[in-house]
Structures are given as structure tokens and as C-alpha cells.
Write a protein that binds this DNA or RNA. Sequence first.
DNA 1: CAAACATTCAATAGATTCATTGAATGTGAT
DNA 2: ATCACATTCAATGAATCTATTGAATGTTTG
Lengths: 221, 221
Amino acid sequence: MAQLSLKKDLFAQLAVIAKSLSNANRLELIDFLAQGERSVDELAHVSGLSVANTSQHLQDLRRSGLVKNRSAGKKVFYSLSDYKVVELVGLMRSLAEDNLAEIQILINNYLASKDDLEPLQRDELLQRVQSGEAIVVDVRPDTEYQAGHVPNAINIPFSKLEHELKSLPKDKEIIAYCRGPYCLLSFDAVVQLREQGFKARRLYEGFPEWKLSGLPIEQGL
Amino acid sequence: MAQLSLKKDLFAQLAVIAKSLSNANRLELIDFLAQGERSVDELAHVSGLSVANTSQHLQDLRRSGLVKNRSAGKKVFYSLSDYKVVELVGLMRSLAEDNLAEIQILINNYLASKDDLEPLQRDELLQRVQSGEAIVVDVRPDTEYQAGHVPNAINIPFSKLEHELKSLPKDKEIIAYCRGPYCLLSFDAVVQLREQGFKARRLYEGFPEWKLSGLPIEQGL
DNA sequence: CAAACATTCAATAGATTCATTGAATGTGAT
DNA sequence: ATCACATTCAATGAATCTATTGAATGTTTG
């Protein structure tokens, strides 16, 4: 029964990937890596894990094909091997939000009101920007922003958000978007902005969907 | 630091989901459930696990929100709680195919040539069907097929494929499609058809993408 | 070459996962 | 009520996972 064997083997391999994702610390590392390449050092610092432990987790992720690494001098830099990894985690989050009561309780406990957390749709964004109620922030890296973005959106890559807080208005609503409905960056940005007292929400979709829908876009800047 | 705590808790919950997916037997159960609701009994039989063990795995999947159950008489029927579960597994598979050497070796070992395995694109499908080289099979359940399908596609739900083998031509290429690029059904169908000596390939995309692209569709039948 | 540094390796103990076994629960049929 | 059946529960031991510790490797700097 070659078929059965193929299936069994295939599932065994998929299980390896899932096992890699089945640890909160490794998920956190992936979350940081979604922002770009990072050294073991940085990852250990930002996650609060020991360097040895961080290294072990990263090697686990590498064995399962989720991240890749590159050594430069005495440092080793890790990065996601595929953008699909972010989609995968995002899809897991979306599934969790819909089907896991624990997540719903969690979110309600930490964030003021459920309504505020609801992501906006495209047309709502357009309305609010036109009426001057809101500004749009693109939290993707510079290069992606320059290749195309939502009109009038300003670019604050997530990694620089903390330093740019003072340039943002507290009286307007801030609408963050990134690469897609399952992209983690805009979600993280909203959480961080709210922590700092801003009125923040995220666009349900990301730039690729915006572009696909035929709405106007801007380039460069 | 409420934010940190939220993030940690969130990742801990996502880890629960991933942990549920991190076992080959549970993935196989999900694969069967993708075809529709099944009793514990059936699932145990088809997966080769003991009933008690199957029940335990199913309860694990239920705790993580991936499946739901319903009891009827002395039977308990399980089903996927969300179609996103299939997308999730499909995305994992896609990631594995791209980034995990083990999977590539696996597939090459089991299936004759890599070229044959490559999925077709829409325009290739149209060409081959027009020239009479190929027939198109929709492996989704009846109801989805009736709601709309690729023109001239015949409907053989995956669960009935085994019984319909004799009605299929061995000299033409059989192109299977289902619900999307990450849908498992068409992949499984191709594997099964090849096992039986048919020339089978799958359409890269599924019906939703076909419809979105503006190509003609048929309904009913 | 020696010192400082970043990362990895190896060994360990405690916790968790998995399949198996046999008993317990609950439903429908006789 | 009793019996057959489907499912779940509970307990077990073997295997695996995780964080910690301290040593080892390899690179740059002085």
C-alpha cells in the first residue's frame, strides 16, 4: 500500500512542522522574525529566554523548515524561510479567534471593548480618512511601502513604531494595515498603540487585497 | 506589562492549536473529517487506530477548537469546526513542499516524475480540455458542485472516487480540482488515481479562484 | 597569540505525550 | 430489565519535550 505509506509519511512530516509551532516561545520568536532578520542575541533579549535556549528553539524551527539562518562574522542571523509562515500563524490566530473560547475571553479581558477591536473594512477606512477622523499607517517595511501603498498612508515600519509615537496624533483614530488579513504586524501595532493611549484599529485586509480590489494606490515617496 | 502578558497568553493558546496538529494520527483524522462528518467508529476503522485511542485524539482536537461533535443515539459524530482547518493543513503542506527537503524526497520517491506532479494552471486546463486530451473532475461534495463548477467538469466527490474508477478513461488525462490551492481533496484524488494507473494531475487552484478570475462557470446538474 | 564575544553542544531532571489496557457510562434493541 | 454496542474514562510505562547548566567551538579584536 504505497498510498497509505505516502500519506502516513506526509502527515508525519507535517506533524514535525506543527510540533515546531506548538510552543509559545517559538511562536514568539517567529513573531519577531516576521519583522525581519534578527540575530540569536537580539531574539534572546527580546523574548526573555536564555541565549542557549533561544538557540535551541531556533534550531528546532530550522529543522522543520520554518526559518533559515546565515552567519556573518561571529553572529548568526535568522529569518523566516517563507512568508507563508506568517500566513500560517495568522490563520491559526484567526481560527483561534473564531473557535476557541479561551482566546475570546483573553482578548476581551485585555482590550477595552470588543467593538473597538473589530477590524475595519475598506469602505469604512475611506470614509473615515475623507472625513478627517482617521489617519492610515502602513506598518510594513520601507521597501514594500515604496512598491505600493494605500493613498495618503504614512509608513511607519513596525520596528520603528515605538520611536515614532510622538509624531502621531492622539485625537485621531489610527488605522494600521500590513500584508494581509492574517498578518501579525498590524495587530501588534494596534495593541502597542492602545497601550500608549492612542485610538487604534486595524484594517481587516492588507495591501495585496486592497490592490486586488482595484482601489487606487500610490507608489514611491 | 499587559501587552506582554496578552502576547504570551495569545501564543500559549496558539501553541495549543499547533500541538493538536503536531501528531500524524490526528492530522490523518482531520484529513478524513475534511470529507464530512464521521463517527468515532468509522474514524477508528479508517485510521487503523483503536477506538479508545481515536476517541482520545478526537477529544484533543475538540479541546483545541479544531473539531466539534454531536451525538445521535449511541453514536458520536465529529466534524471540522471550520473550513479554515483544511486551509491551515493545506498551508502547512504547501510550506512543507517548498521548504522541507524530506517532503520533496518523499514525493519524488512515491510518485514517478516530478513534472507529472506539478499542478496545472487554469489556461493549461482549458487547452487540454478543448483538445480532448483531458477531462476535468470536481471532487467536492455534491452540494458545492451544484452551486457552481468548472464547465464540463464531472462531479465525483472524493468519498465516492473509489467506486467510480471504472467509469473513468485510462487514456485521457484526469484533472482534479477542489476548493482551493491548499485543499487536500484533489491532492488525495490524484494520488489515488495514480495508484490505479490513471494519468492524473490536479488544478493548482480550486473553484473559488476560478470563479474569481471571471472564467465561465456552470451551475446545477 | 590571547582575550572577548556569539553561538552551539551535551547532559540533566521534571513535565508532557502517546498507545495500550480494562473498566465505566450511556443508548437502543430484545 | 437485560443485553449488545459505541464511546469515554482512568491508569500505566515508554518515549519525547523543555529549560537549565556549564563546557566547547569558532570569530573578531587588540
